[in-house]
């Protein structure tokens, strides 16, 4: 049941327990218990909303930053990653295989504020060798959802 619950709430976290139980053919109490257990185990980490900020009047820029760092003896990458993710400006931090080490996403109000965060905060952390900042210009698809086009039912209205 876990897998099914996760598949559903990953797409629609607003669905209520009663509805979940109905479409899964399960008891409400079992669904509620499963959800609670998964929250406690840290499998479910939050219920966020996907927002296309582009369509609002709120100014917002997001940057993807490639960060190369020197791993520390005994600690690897974790200490530096922690120093980075503690900044509230930082939205996500991933350890990456390949040409660089950490992929950091940073949200800010303006290009300037993000660049100054990178230059003044991120790049100056001890152990950070280099950064490369990419600003996101347009989001076409996010979390499996296409943002640029709306679903349209083009079927005939009645067919045998």
């Amino acid at each position: 049941m876990r897998e099914q619950i996760l598949a559903i709430i990953e797409k629609n976290s607003r669905i209520n327990i009663k509805e979940l139980a109905v479409i899964l053919g399960a008891e409400e109490i079992d669904v509620a218990n499963e959800l609670k257990a998964m929250e406690e185990e840290g499998i479910i980490c939050g219920y966020h909303t996907m927002i296309d900020w582009e369509k609002t009047s709120i100014e917002k820029v997001t940057a993807l930053i490639e960060v190369r760092i020197t791993p520390q003896r005994g600690k690897g990458y974790d200490n530096i990653a922690e120093r980075i993710y503690k900044y509230p400006d930082v939205n996500s931090v991933y350890l990456i295989s390949g040409g660089y080490d950490l992929l950091v996403t940073v949200d800010g109000k303006t290009l300037k504020s993000v660049s100054s965060f990178v230059n003044e905060k991120l790049a100056t952390i001890e152990g950070v060798l280099s950064t490369a900042t990419h600003f996101i210009l347009k989001k076409y698809k996010d979390h499996g959802t296409i943002l640029t086009k709306k679903y349209e039912d083009t079927r005939e209205k009645v067919t045998p």
């Binding site: 039912d153 079927r155 005939e156 209205k157 009645v158 067919t159 045998p160």
Partner: peptide, 23 residues
């Protein structure tokens, strides 16, 4: 189905549950 289909098609804002193919 044909006859009914003609009426449904006239109605712009009808919600159809009449389709015999996957969405």
């Amino acid at each position: 189905i044909r006859k009914f289909f003609d009426i449904v098609n006239e109605m712009e804002d009808a919600i159809s549950l009449g389709v015999g193919e996957p969405d």
